Amino acid sequence: MNQWVHLCIDMQRIFAEDTPWHVPWMSRVSGEIIELSECHPQRTIFTRFMTPERATDMPGMWRAYYEKWHEMTRAKIAIELLDVVPDLAHLIPPARILDKMTYSPWTSGHLHQQLHAESVDTVVVTGGETDVCVLAAAIGGIELGYKVIVLEDAVCSGTDETHDAALELLRSRFSAQLEITKAAEFMAQLRS
Score class of each variant (00 low, 15 high):
P93R: 08
H116W: 04
P93S: 03
T126F: 00
M72S: 10
R96T: 11
C133V: 10
T130R: 00
L167I: 15
V84S: 08
P59Y: 10
T126R: 04
Y146S: 11
L82N: 04
E118L: 14
H70D: 15
S119G: 08
E38K: 14
T122S: 14
E80G: 01
D131P: 02
L115K: 09
A16W: 05
A16I: 01
A138T: 15
K182H: 11
D87K: 13
W21L: 10
L82V: 09
K100W: 07
E67D: 11
E185Q: 12
D121H: 13
D18Q: 07
D99Y: 00
Q113I: 02
E168P: 00
A138L: 07
W4E: 10
I14T: 04
G31T: 02
G31H: 12
E168Q: 10
P93E: 02
V155E: 02
L169T: 07
M26K: 05
G158A: 12
H90Y: 12
E17H: 06
L135R: 12
I9V: 15
T47L: 01
I34H: 02
G158F: 10
P20N: 07
G145H: 08
D121P: 03
L144Y: 01
E179D: 12
L169P: 00
L98D: 05
L82W: 06
A188W: 05
T159F: 08
T47I: 03
L144D: 02
A183S: 15
T107Y: 01
T107L: 02
V23R: 05
R54G: 07
L7S: 04
E67M: 10
M26G: 12
V29H: 02
G141C: 08
W62Y: 07
I149T: 12
E38S: 08
I149V: 15
M61C: 07
K76Y: 09
M61Y: 09
G141P: 09
C133F: 04
L82C: 08
Q12T: 14
D18R: 05
P20Q: 09
T47F: 00
D57H: 15
M61V: 13
A75N: 15
D10H: 10
E129K: 08
W69A: 14
V132W: 00
F49C: 02
A184W: 01
L169S: 05
Q3V: 14
G128L: 14
Q189H: 13
T130W: 00
E118F: 07
D57L: 01
M11C: 15
E143L: 04
G145K: 07
I34Y: 04
G127M: 13
H70L: 06
G109M: 09
Q177A: 05
D153G: 06
G127V: 15
G127W: 09
A165H: 04
Q42W: 07
L91N: 10
V155I: 11
D10N: 13
F174G: 04
V125N: 04
K147A: 09
T102W: 06
T56G: 06
M101F: 05
D153M: 07
D160W: 00
C156V: 11
T122W: 10
R191E: 13
R171Q: 12
L135T: 10
C8L: 05
Y103H: 13
T107F: 00
D131C: 03
M72Q: 14
